[in-house]
Amino acid sequence: MTMRRELREHAGIYLRGLMMGACDVIPGVSGGTIALITGIYERLIGAIGAVDPGSLKHVLHGDFGAFRNDLEKIDFPFLVVLLAGIATAFLVMSGVILYLLGYHGVETYSFFIGLIIASAVVLFLEIRSPGLAGLAFLLAGTVAGFFLTGLGHLDAGHSLPVIFLTGMVAICAMVLPGISGAYMTLILNQYEFMLAALKSFALPEIVTFMVGGLTGLLLFTKALKYLLKNHKTAMLAFLTGLMLGSTRMLSEKAAMSGNILVDGGIFLVAGIVVIGMVEYVKRR
């Protein structure tokens, strides 16, 4: 591959990373969906799935030749460029979202509600024959999401262990096209805190979140792939319910900022329309 062609390919990957990062900052829009639409989802999952914790042994033993071979297997340049794009979008978008939440709270939260409701519907439509079992998992997920987001009032705090756990859970967005990483941080009541940490470039919190995400990649990727392959209906139905139930927290936050129907109704509809457009592009 010539240098010019390689630079062009890396620029394309970086732009895809920017789009994925911008979407992952917004609850309800999945960076995985953007990866699917832009044609890099399978490459991304293949690269993540090829990550082997045993590679660290090669470094510790000074076997850098074997370590270099491991990097080639996981498509290392692709991951580095893509993550650079995602990180850039995180840093830029964090300030924008914080401003919107601070000065246009009801409109922003209503938009998020529309995004999540529409995303849940799209995710459930992936189940061709849900049956009674699928409906049962849908109900279980809805109940779990409703009560789980209610725990936000207890507030687990923003200690480094909590942030580490949040990073582990949020990594699901890279594996499941229908789930947003920001949505997971929202459920765990860390969303606005992590936005502020990104804006102020608070390294301890950012690094802890990233290490948690890396740990989640190593632990969860193969498990999630197995569940999707062997228990897809139950998995998708439960996740759909979880998303629907979690709108409780958003509704409460929106209500604290104003009247959802009067001030946020049009933004709620706009969120639904955005997901509809994304799904239309994906299917085309």
Rank of each mutant, 00 (worst) to 15 (best):
G167F: 04
L228E: 02
L227T: 00
M93N: 10
S129N: 12
G216M: 12
E205G: 03
A182D: 03
L60V: 15
V278E: 11
L268G: 12
L151I: 01
E279K: 13
I116E: 01
I86G: 03
M243G: 01
F76H: 12
T2E: 09
A197Q: 10
L236W: 00
T185N: 06
V81C: 10
L135C: 06
A22T: 12
M184K: 06
L218A: 14
E252L: 12
V106S: 04
E126L: 07
I45G: 11
Y191I: 05
V274S: 11
G54Y: 10
N189R: 07
V122K: 13
G134V: 03
L83H: 11
F90M: 14
A234Q: 07
L139H: 01
E279L: 09
G131V: 04
G12P: 00
T215P: 05
A35M: 09
A196D: 14
F112M: 13
M1W: 08
A35C: 09
A170P: 01
Y226S: 03
V122N: 10
C23I: 05
G28C: 09
A136I: 04
T233D: 03
F64K: 11
G167A: 13
L228V: 00
T142G: 07
V106E: 02
I260Y: 05
A156E: 09
G141H: 02
A84Y: 07
F164K: 11
E252H: 07
A170N: 06
G28M: 05
D263I: 00
M256V: 04
M93W: 09
L56V: 13
A173H: 04
R8M: 05
V262I: 04
R68M: 15
L125M: 11
K229S: 09
E252Q: 11
I127F: 03
I97Y: 02
N259K: 07
K199P: 00
V262R: 14
T38K: 08
F111L: 15
I272H: 06
S200Q: 15
T38Q: 08
P77T: 08
T149Y: 03
L154K: 13
Y109P: 06
E6Q: 11
G178P: 02
T233E: 04
T215I: 14
I37A: 13
S159E: 13
G131Q: 07
E279W: 05
F67W: 14
L224Q: 05
T215A: 15
I13D: 03
M93L: 15
S30M: 05
V121D: 08
H153N: 10
A50H: 09
L165K: 04
